[in-house]
């Protein structure tokens, strides 16, 4: 690919860095894994870039590549997401931003979900419609909707009840 493609790709990635950061943050706890996977996502996105025809938004396409890369990545340290005492919040310090208790609660609860449910709720909260979630995940639209409903109910009840 030529320099113009590289330039365009770089700009698109920089505009959508948040997607990669979010996926890394939601699925990996080990800093070494995160660093390796960050590079792997960029590599896979660049390798697949010629197949991006602009039929969907670049952000949606990058989301798919990022999720697929994370899900097919062979983790070096097969740590389960660390369930820290909620008061500690060490896990979330690397966002370099102070967050409210509500944001911390949300992150904590989302990271406690299984990987598939984590993907569904994060896509929903990012504004994707049920048919788009179905298209990205491979679920049927109705199944995605039912799963989403259950996850939301679970999250809301836990946030409301402070049952963390």
């Amino acid at each position: 690919m030529n320099n113009t493609s590289k330039q365009k790709f770089t700009e698109l990635i920089q505009d959508n860095t948040g997607i990669i950061n979010k996926v890394l943050f939601l699925y990996l706890d080990d800093p070494e894994d995160r660093d390796d996977l960050n590079q792997e996502i960029l590599f896979q996105a660049w390798k697949s870039y010629p197949r991006f025809k602009g039929n969907s938004k670049f952000s949606t396409w990058l989301y798919k590549v990022s999720l697929n890369t994370v899900f097919t990545y062979q983790r070096k340290t097969r740590k389960k997401p660390e369930i820290v005492e909620f008061e500690e919040h060490h896990e979330y310090d690397d966002l370099h931003e102070s967050k409210t208790d509500q944001q911390n609660s949300l992150l904590y609860l989302i990271k406690k979900l299984d990987e598939v449910n984590r993907m569904i709720i994060s896509l929903h909260l990012d504004g994707y419609k049920n048919e788009e979630i179905a298209e990205i995940t491979g679920l049927t639209k109705n199944n995605a909707a039912v799963k989403l409903h259950r996850i939301k109910e679970k999250l809301i009840s836990k946030m409301k009840g402070g049952n963390l």
């Binding site: 790709f9 860095t17 948040g18 590079q39 960029l42 967050k99």
Partner: peptide
């Protein structure tokens, strides 16, 4: 709460050199 978190995710940018380095590496894909 999620929307506010989004700002944090978007704030950390990947610089151009890091992107260029990543796309020329060897894949760790199984």
């Amino acid at each position: 709460a999620w929307d506010q978190l989004q700002n944090n995710f978007n704030r950390q940018k990947i610089d151009k050199e890091a992107i260029m380095q990543a796309i020329t590496r060897t894949s760790s894909n199984p």
